[in-house]
């Protein structure tokens, strides 16, 4: 299968501030991709670039082989559910379906009506009167009924309560199983993504820290616990993601492709949440050695 998203040295600058820099990605098709990172890390910027909402300041990006937002055909292939799931407050749900039908060549009206019926949303209702969860479902329905090859969702569940969150993600997963499209969704909470994603991108301080299939990431990251020592003395193929020390003990989270033979370490599996937190707390571009010198 071809890549859904390829980025080469992609960057976006607002004034003198780089919201995203040096981003190189190659996401294969057929995944549910989670984009995770703290607020302001550049997640929305990356998604806006992928949907063609903004143009890059440097580098290049192609989505499904085309330039994002360049033509009606490209727009038709990519669905986008924006942050806070905006809808026209003055228009009814039926009007929104009509909007979708008028503006999209591949509109699947039966899908939209069936889905809204299942959710118990009355087409005569005004979108402005809907609850946050219902509005998010309406926006998702618009994105799904467009029948895109790639659906991008920017923090779709951020403003929803836990129950609405679960229903939203459940609805999304059912649609993915039924219609087989790729998904990229962002969140600042790993817990939201853990259940639905099979591919993960961690982005911190406008840079991509790690990207890969969830299974591979979990298989290649380990927590090492053992007597206190300098992480710099680890074998070259073991990359330290985070390190914490007590007086006598050192705990490391490392990435490695090879088995760990050193008997001094007790090796344990880490959860996806631990992995993401390790990358988020990792200070960018700082070597660990000087910090340890000080501690001695």
């Amino acid at each position: 299968m071809t890549a859904v998203l390829q980025a080469q040295g992609l960057g976006k600058r607002y004034g003198r501030h780089w919201a995203l820099s040096d981003c190189t990605l190659d996401i294969p098709a057929g995944h549910v991709v989670g984009l995770v990172g703290p607020n302001g890390a550049g997640k929305t910027t990356l998604l806006n670039l992928a949907s063609g909402q903004t143009a890059p300041s440097s580098g290049s990006i192609t989505v499904l082989g085309g330039l994002p937002g360049a033509s009606p055909a490209q727009l038709a292939k990519v669905g986008f559910v924006a942050q806070d799931t905006p809808t026209y407050a003055g228009l009814s749900i039926a009007d929104h379906l009509r909007l979708g039908a008028r503006l999209n060549p591949g509109w699947d009206d039966a899908l939209a009506r069936e889905r809204l019926g299942r959710l118990g949303l009355d087409p005569a209702h005004r979108a402005g009167k809907l609850s946050g969860g219902q509005r998010a479902q309406l926006a998702l329905t618009l994105g799904l009924a467009k029948r895109p090859e790639l659906l991008i969702l920017d923090e779709p569940v951020a403003s929803l309560d836990p129950l609405a969150r679960r229903e939203f993600l459940q609805g999304l997963m059912e649609a993915v199983v039924e219609h087989e499209f790729s998904v990229v969704l962002s969140s600042h909470l790993v817990a939201d993504l853990e259940r639905v994603c099979d591919y993960l991108i961690v982005i911190v301080d406008s840079r991509v820290q790690v990207a890969g299939e969830v299974e591979e990431l979990l298989a290649s990251h380990h927590r090492l616990t053992g007597p206190r020592r300098d992480p710099a003395r680890l074998p070259a193929d073991q990359h330290v993601i985070s390190a914490s020390h007590t007086d006598r003990q050192t705990t490391l989270i490392i990435r490695t492709g090879a088995p760990i033979h050193d008997p001094a370490w007790s090796v344990s599996q880490i959860s996806l949440e631990d992995l993401v937190l390790a990358y988020m707390s990792k200070p960018a571009h700082i070597d660990y050695r000087p910090a340890l010198e000080v501690q001695r």
């Binding site: 038709a76 924006a82 806070d84 618009l142 467009k146």
Partner: peptide, 10 residues
């Protein structure tokens, strides 16, 4: 914010 809805139709 509805420009982000309408600009992502085809």
């Amino acid at each position: 914010g509805t420009h982000r809805l309408v600009w992502n139709q085809s």
